[in-house]
Amino acid sequence: MNSPEEQFSELRRLLAIKRHERPPPGHFDRLAQQIRHALEAETVSDCSTWWERFISRFDIQPAWAAAVAVAVAAVYLYAFVSSQAPQSPRVSVHYPASQDWISAAHPFWIPSPATGQITGEESHGRNATSFRSSVGPIMGMEPVHGFLTSPRNPDVLPASLSIRTP
């Protein structure tokens, strides 16, 4: 009786043809690259912090670095331009001497020395002591401070309104 190897020798010769089946040239180079890229992408997504993911993107896509640089430059430019803009005219109001209601409504508001009393002239002839504002203090209309400038003295924010009458 023939051994299995001898018994199937013809078949094995036929099957040998399958060893000659080859993928297109360059296939294995591409396959290795695809595997590498997939693993790199997976490694990126596995990074523990958002900062690591953010930084590691620069290695894969240099365009990311350029985009971030442009964005940062744009923010700085906007900040610089806004800090250099001319100040708007200041509108302020004088408040009556009695400021208890303001203090109650705005516990952090500190009256400036310039405010606190409206003169008869400034109140268009009305009795200064009986004047009561129906609105709260008007805040300064200009921005408190720019991105690159230090904040102004907060004490003067609820500033006085100066209405000059002829």
Binding site: R13, A16, H20, E21, R22, P23, P24
Partner: peptide, 12 residues
Amino acid sequence: DDIDLNAEHDPD
């Protein structure tokens, strides 16, 4: 896949 050229010359 294509069979490579050597197959045609393989005596078996």
